[in-house]
């Protein structure tokens, strides 16, 4: 295991970061293509951005960098295996509503009592699909298999985002912006991984580039 004495130190070389970036590009590009086929709308995933953030600055980073103002929807999901961590999707409540409209042709007929329920179902489905696809594709590129837990949907969260990060840890953050159907739905996907997993990831990246 790698020990990082100074939390601002980046535990990844520029070369490794480049490879990771390219693996992400490829993975997310494939995800966009296949997802578009499944849900039948144009899907755009931005070039993923890899950042290392000290745990104590995480909350601050989210509110400053994301400029997302509450209320928003959050979908949290853990994954485990050699590549392990937490994925979470964040998007505005407005986007959540639009997502229901995109996916459920017959949506809305449930009346007022049904809207939250419908939204929850849709978000759980799409969140699971998006994280599963992104994490799965990265793992696939690196020849690994990942296990997932049940996603957790938090509707209209207005409080501070999440307390899932240990203040003393280092968070390896992969951020991507996604858009469905010409902007009707957009948000962020974060992958947070721990240092053990990151060590494996680094080795896998070297193996990856060697195969060409």
């Amino acid at each position: 295991m790698m020990i990082i004495p100074n939390s601002t130190e980046v535990p990844i070389s520029e070369d490794e970061k480049d490879i990771l970036q390219e693996v992400m590009n490829i993975s997310f590009g494939q995800v966009a293509a296949e997802l578009a086929e499944i849900i039948d709308v144009l899907v755009v995933l931005s070039v993923p951005n890899v950042t290392v953030v000290p745990g104590k600055d995480f909350q601050n980073y989210l509110s400053k960098k994301l400029k997302l103002s509450p209320p928003f929807n959050v979908i949290e999901q853990s994954f485990s295996g050699k590549l392990s961590g937490i994925a979470f999707l964040v998007f505005s409540s407005e986007s959540g509503k639009n997502m229901v409209a995109i996916l459920d042709e017959e949506g809305g007929e449930d009346g007022i009592q049904g809207i939250d329920q419908l939204e929850k179902e849709t978000l759980m489905e799409i969140g699971n699909m998006l994280t599963g696809a992104c994490v799965g594709k990265i793992a696939e590129q690196l020849d690994e298999v990942v296990y997932y837990t049940l996603p957790r949907v938090i509707l209209n969260s207005s409080s501070s985002l999440i307390d899932l990060v240990d203040k003393d840890s280092v968070v390896i953050l992969v951020k991507t912006e996604f858009q469905f159907a010409d902007n009707d739905v957009s948000g962020f996907l974060f992958l947070i991984t721990n240092q053990d997993s990151f060590q494996w990831l680094k080795e896998a990246l070297h193996r990856y580039i060697e195969q060409f």
């Binding site: 499944i38 759980m124 489905e125």
Partner: peptide, 18 residues
């Protein structure tokens, strides 16, 4: 649609659908 989409996704991505 939801079940069919979920199955397609699992076929495409190898993830789990819940």
């Amino acid at each position: 649609p939801r079940f069919l989409r979920s199955c397609k996704a699992v076929f495409a991505f190898g993830n789990l659908a819940f």
